[in-house]
Amino acid sequence: MNNLYRVLPPLAPDYAGACAVMYELGGLVLIHDATGCTVNYVSFDEPRWHEKPGMVYCSGLTEIDAVMGNDDVLIDKALRAAEELHPAFIAYVGSSVPLIVGTDFAGIAAETEARSGIPSFGFECSGIRSYIRGASDALYALADRFCGEKTESSGTLLLGQLPLDDAGTDASRKIPELFPDLRASLSFNCTLDDLRQAQNAACCVVVSAAGLRTARMLEQRYGIPWTAGLPLPACTVPHGSVLVIGEDVRAHSLAAALGNAAALDLFSDTGLADYHTRQEEEIAALAARYDNVIADPCFRPLVRGNFIPMPSMSVSGGLFAETVPALDTAAIAALLK
């Protein structure tokens, strides 16, 4: 039955992606929910929280506030917190109840900015769409707002790097190392100044589908060329067919490097990957066509062939440690049949 998760856990949602993009940028982020959505995010979708908790808070939405459309409470809380925290910006992030009651986040952000003078954003997340969608919207909005005039052209800018795509932050730290002329990786180990200077990059590399929309905007507005994918070394060892399951750009990159491989995207459906689905029965049927399957350990029960576990926070939330480096195609190839 479609949308019945009997094996897999629910995957990381849109508000997790939006919060992940803003985590290191010095903004005050309020998830507009009762508590559960924020707990989801800080518990399983944000590995940086355990290293240094960020300025992501829960609005503490109540039933009566939701029913009465009592948005002033939300704005007052944000402004009171801003008096103490002095954030670079304020962002409201939606969840499932605001979806039901039709909360006007754009209006709330506009009123917040009018009252405080602090740049403010509202993201209509729902907890229904994928983290890629939330991250894409947030990155685009921040870049659209903060990027200024182009004064130089140097270095490579990574767009869409999210710890959610990795097994943990140790794995995330290896991604920028692939780019010798790295200027910055937005959304990971970065500052708001990196974002303010994004227009000065010589080129952009989209490392998850979350960066696609912003890459197109930077190209259109500043003429910055971009590519999508990780530059992984090609595998030269002969092997059977492979299905790589995961995020669109990452799965496509690994499949291309391995050869004789296809990618199955779970999140964004940008068209890079060969397949896009998150239905368990369809995934099991596709997996049965391949000799090898590379995916988060949670997928193991859906696979009958050779299974190579590659944990991803977006699926298993940091429960599993990496057993083979995600960027080491030679090590991965050694496990293929």
């Binding site: 998760y5 629910p10 990381a12 949602p13 518990s43 969840s95 907890g127 229904i128 939330g317 429960l319």
Partner: peptide, 10 residues
Amino acid sequence: PVTCARNICL
């Protein structure tokens, strides 16, 4: 909504 049960399932 799918996200509500994420921490439960994990």
